[in-house]
Design a protein around this nucleic acid. Sequence first.
DNA 1: TCGACCATGTTGCCTGGGCAACTTATTTTC
DNA 2: GAAAATAAGTTGCCCAGGCAACATGGTCGA
Lengths: 230, 230
Amino acid sequence: MEQIAQILKQTKLFKDVSQELLQTCIVPRGKTVSYPKGSCLISAGQKCHSFLILLQGTVNIMYYYADGSTSLSSKEAAPRVLALDLVATKSGTSPYFAVAAEPCLVFSFPADLLLKPGSFPEEQRQALLQQFLIMLSHLHMEKEKHLMVLSRNGLRDRIITYLSLQAQWKNSLSFTIPFSREEMAAYLSVNRSNLSHELSRMKQEGIIDFYRNSFTLRKADPFLGSDSQM
Amino acid sequence: MEQIAQILKQTKLFKDVSQELLQTCIVPRGKTVSYPKGSCLISAGQKCHSFLILLQGTVNIMYYYADGSTSLSSKEAAPRVLALDLVATKSGTSPYFAVAAEPCLVFSFPADLLLKPGSFPEEQRQALLQQFLIMLSHLHMEKEKHLMVLSRNGLRDRIITYLSLQAQWKNSLSFTIPFSREEMAAYLSVNRSNLSHELSRMKQEGIIDFYRNSFTLRKADPFLGSDSQM
DNA sequence: TCGACCATGTTGCCTGGGCAACTTATTTTC
DNA sequence: GAAAATAAGTTGCCCAGGCAACATGGTCGA
């Protein structure tokens, strides 16, 4: 049980909160649920007014469309706060699915513990709200980057935009991405085999180098990477 | 000069703040700048730690790429708070350009007026931060929707996804969109003439009806629109 | 009322990239 | 460590949609 508070403290949200406080104010008011691989932590259309803390496992944030097709928005690994963006809205209605990519353990507690005064020392609560705001804006920037990628039409342009943003974010021309090829293709919303093909071509042309999910940009990339975000 | 406070109060951010308070706490600490059509209120890479309040005019939020191509993220009309998403981040670095689509008048003030205590009655400030959070999450949802649209590959799928989300948002099968055809094409990141063409085809097939920027969905759309967002 | 201008709609050509079918590499299982 | 399973890379076909060039209709100023 103290394990929960311990993992909570590893999240960006709670990093500055004492484990004791978490143990007394948060842990007793939430609950822990485990999800088998493939199950949904959050479904589109569902309302969510609780913070979900991913204690163990990884989840994919995905969009599902009427015709059965899907697309990958992001991949989140424990320890991680989910549903940040949902709890701040009035309705809390999710546009996306959060799917367990591997077996997950999730601790959830009502968002009002943070959003409303009372259940927390007020000063702490203010600090947490501040942190919440920062995390939300961070999440927002991730979406902006994704939009920048998907706004490009050509396959190669999409790849370059994505890799450049990654390099900028990691502040290095060499970096690893969190995706397998298939996931990368889903994130870029392109055909997997074409993606592989184009990557090979770009390697041959000396633009990039890569092995699996490790990439290196070879030529000066179009983005003059100063500091990136956050 | 009181005009400024008056327009400020029309924004979602300040709607619950008295005009007097705005006049004393905000207006004297900010400045007003006018931008000719086509000029940049915010450039990508630039740091922004001020709230920008669009008093008059409209701006396009756009991404610019190295090869000169652009894409349209959104269109904002006065009265409106800009740079919401930037001020919450540490660096405040913008990934996008805010371009005056018509002559604009902008009032800006340091974000710290809200983010840090001192320059505002504390209770008011808390309420404003709360509102800020809601607005940011709203903005975030807009990006989510845009992502859902751009994740679709087919032209028709993109159109349907976009129109369905609009219908859901407006809570009606008939609605107007804020875009001209050209802007709509830019938002959808598709070719304008193909967009027109496909729209016509869809009209002929009885799926939709439209005239200019007024649309009506004819057939049951794939999204079971309950309440949408916020 | 006319002409100029801009937004929207139409047509056809051509290619980028989706898709399927396959090969090769890598990891897992017993 | 061989077989099976999974992930990555390769090839070719073919059509959706980018692009250009043009047609139409709507708006505005004189």
